[in-house]
Design a protein around this nucleic acid. Structure first.
Lengths: 134, 134
DNA sequence: TGCGCTTTTGACAATCATTGTCATTATCGA
DNA sequence: TCGATAATGACAATGATTGTCAAAAGCGCA
């Protein structure tokens, strides 16, 4: 009932999830992370992993990407708003900033009277490595 | 085996799906479209609707959007590349062109040596109507 | 126009990520 | 330390999408 309290408790499971995210590169699915945790000997339920990730996504601590493939992918990213350039072959990811895009989106929305604006954007391509091997 | 032949046959089911898409506004899920078709008296299987939509999406005849909600949404749009400004309350959609965004995405990808680049972008907000009612 | 090869269809089952449930457990403030 | 309450986790449920495969069209060709 008290929307301000947001009584987030510090549990070892939550820390565990945060840790794995901090120590891995690139995007991983919830199921991936769950497997990694089990490999580490951490005993965390899959349901908890999902909920923890949702929570972290809500607070902006992790980024979520929903690629055409299907599963949601999570990654610990720099805090500010940014976008991702993803290699569709090897999955390598580069964070890119696009102030121009941000303001463009805002302007477009504004022109049509839309408020409370957010946007999503992903760029897909083939990275130099993979293109070379191709 | 022959990638050029693309022997697309003209079936009444395919036309039916195309027709509904042509006569409705906004985005609709595959299940929506399936229901509409049944209401019209067209007898089209759900599986077929899915496959037809995929085909149309491949040829660029329809646009696909994958909102956080879950279902894929399909819409008959103008042919060229464009993006969507979607009201998250009523679903109203505005097509927006963003040459700046296109070139920005290309440039970013180029800077990192990525090739064969594509991107996705959606803008979400609350439209004037819904904001007024709020 | 009729024939046959091939694609397409469609009912149904299967898949699979994600969410709901709820009794048990752990956390945090007093 | 204690008690209220949020968090956990095993499991079931959900629900969209995809796979399957026999039956039914389309299309090219004679």
């Amino acid at each position: 009932m008290n929307p301000e309290s947001s009584a987030q408790r510090n549990t070892k499971q939550r820390s565990a999830v945060r840790d794995v995210l901090g120590e891995t590169e690139g995007f991983h699915s919830a199921q991936d992370l769950h497997a990694m945790l089990r490999d580490r000997g951490e005993r965390v339920g899959l349901t908890t992993v999902y909920r923890t990730l949702q929570g972290l996504a809500d607070t902006g601590e992790v980024d979520v990407m929903r690629p055409p493939g299907g599963e949601h992918l999570y990654r610990r990213c720099s805090q500010g708003h940014h976008h991702h350039l993803v290699c569709r072959s090897c999955g390598r990811t580069v964070e890119v900033l696009g102030p121009a895009v941000e303001s463009w989106a805002e302007k477009m929305a504004g022109q049509h009277g839309f408020v409370d604006v957010s946007h999503t954007m992903e760029i897909f391509g083939t990275c130099p490595e993979c293109a070379g091997k191709g």
